[in-house]
Design a protein around this nucleic acid. Structure first.
Lengths: 339, 339
DNA sequence: GTTCTTCTTGGGAGCGCTCCCAACGGGCGC
DNA sequence: GCGCCCGTTGGGAGCGCTCCCAAGAAGAAC
């Protein structure tokens, strides 16, 4: 049950290996009639190119690396990654590129995995996600000379190409909207403070809230538990916020439960905004006002950029569309502000 | 910036390529002193094995294939897959196996992807998930001769090895529990009727409900929307059920919202059970009674089985632990049954 | 018919690695 | 001191493919 090789085809067709190679790759060098005959035989005996042999000749690996450095627990919970991956896939599979996926524990092992894959010729490029402030992966990847696309803000991605969306505008849009509704005390329950996009949102939030009353920011690890705890603490303070903006939908849903548990009505007593939309936000009562983004499209764009980079087309970084506010039932004027 | 090869090492060490190969692979054939010298040089010049060259000699690809045939939309929503993947990964990465992931649109293209990967020597084996009734992938994989582990019930996996958990016991446990609480009208909002595990649960549900009042089963596509719609329809019927068992947590959460929207109190007017637990079920009010399963452990077991199969160890299929009922606030005695 | 050009074809090197085979050399038994 | 065995080493074929090079054939121009 040995796999047929181009040698077998050549023998059957009565031509040389070279001719078969040209015919199979659509290259000039063989006549059309010979090509057809070779293709027919190849098809008949079920020939498949051996990627190893191709790779040995300096060809592409036709695979992209993605090492995810997140605890499995969080990974399983957040729709973001699966949506991102399906977006990446849509573009990659159209070009017959596979995705090499590996969950790693920390940055050093993520770096090691990338070095190994690249060194062994298993991948043609890689994505970097969840950019940290002063991310150690960036300088290593810059040195490695491997095509890399950072999915995150260019401020932290060094000389690497990045695909990002503006974090500032959605923050401003949200705060302005809440202020227009009459809110003066807006809190933000944020994600990991180490992440670049968290700090960017923090800064913009601080600026957008200038002139308002106390606008606290609490950092969490994105889990529902921490989102619930932070919410409980905020709502127990003497001057509780009338609106909370969450950094993901999981925490927003958890926060909604806590508010209802504490006897508050949403949105009358508390308005809630979730960053990143998902079916989850629409399924709870009231459905959550959310900052919606087309994550699969975002991933697809990143994949296009990386494939371009691999092809040697030197296009620059790409700014994707920013998230836009999608008001639903969880936001409204605060009862106290009866204007 | 060419990558060093064993030829370079051999030249520097003043030995032959053969000796280097033996030294690097920990095989007998070189003296310990030579081995050490070679390893030192290899380390110094940063040598990495070229996987393509290795694969060319019939070696492993050190990668496993997983083609997911689900719309991206559902994929992004269900925690199940990411948890499964992180479980697979935990075991695979420990053995330095990578996961080749590809999202495909239908079974024919999933089959094509597997054939290509296997034919091209890119993978050493593959997982099959979401087993359908009379699944067309099974006979193809049997013919292909590739190591495959089916993550699903052995009744549908032909001669392929499978890793599964009993679907019957959890159904019985759930129905018995609800009956003990006093419920007589229990409904089931199920997933896709094409899937093997759906039909198994359906059958068992039918048996377990024997002797009870009307116990309808509604099939959906696992989305929150369809779960909500099915719930609304059931609760609008003249004799509405006092308990609903959902096939995933997304639909259970959606169903909870619908019930509350319709002015029903959970669990007094309606008890809710979710199949497959996740933080989501614990975050809503009341927290959902759920059939809990350790999905990462399930995935890890599947990975172990597949790696064993690849190594030629012929262990049989493996039955994993069945899901167990984890009662929370969403179940209780129906108000009508004041016993 | 001859020469030149152009298209087609066969031959073969080389990619980096593994592994078989033969040669070499030192330690041992006699 | 001689021959033998075994541990060590060098040499080299071969994995399946790509691509360069040269040779052959066919057609055009004279």
């Amino acid at each position: 049950m040995k796999r047929p090789t181009i040698g077998d085809i050549a023998r059957q067709a009565g031509v040389s290996k070279g001719a078969v190679s040209y015919a199979l790759n659509g290259q000039p060098g063989v006549s059309e009639s010979t090509r057809q005959r070779i293709l027919a035989i190849a098809d008949e005996i079920g020939w498949r190119p051996n990627s190893a042999a191709r790779a040995l000749n300096g060809a592409r690996a036709n695979a992209i690396g993605l090492a995810l450095c997140r605890p499995a627990r969080i990974l399983g919970m957040e729709p973001f990654f699966m949506e991102l991956i399906s977006g990446l896939e849509a573009e990659l599979s159209a070009r017959d590129f596979a995705l090499m996926l590996q969950v790693v524990g920390d940055h050093p092992s993520e770096i090691a995995v990338h070095q190994r894959w690249w060194g062994e010729g298993r991948i043609d490029g890689a994505f970097l996600v969840d950019l940290h402030v002063n991310d150690p992966r960036v300088p290593v990847m810059e040195d490695l000379g491997m095509p890399v696309v950072v999915i995150g803000d260019p401020s932290g991605s060094g000389s690497l190409m990045s695909v990002w969306s503006d974090e500032g505008a959605p923050v401003r849009e949200t705060v302005d909207y809440l202020v227009a509704l009459g809110h003066r005390r807006i809190a933000r329950i944020a994600g990991l403070p180490k992440l670049v996009h968290t700090t960017l949102r923090d800064q913009e939030f601080g600026r957008a809230c200038a002139g308002l009353d106390d606008c606290p920011v609490v950092h969490t690890d994105y889990t529902g538990e921490q989102g619930a705890r932070a919410t409980r603490r905020l709502l127990s303070s003497r001057v509780r916020p009338t609106a909370i903006v969450y950094d993901n939908d999981i925490m927003a849903v958890a926060g909604l439960s806590v508010a209802q548990e504490m006897g508050l009505t949403v949105p009358a007593d508390l308005s809630i905004v979730a960053w990143d939309d998902s079916p989850l936000s629409q399924v709870v009562r009231p459905p959550l006002t959310a900052l919606t983004r087309d994550i699969p499209a975002y991933g697809a764009q990143a994949a296009r950029q990386l494939l371009g980079l691999i092809d040697g087309l030197e296009r620059g970084s790409h700014e994707d569309r920013a998230a836009t506010l999608n008001p639903r039932g969880s936001t409204g004027p605060p009862v106290s502000a009866g204007h």
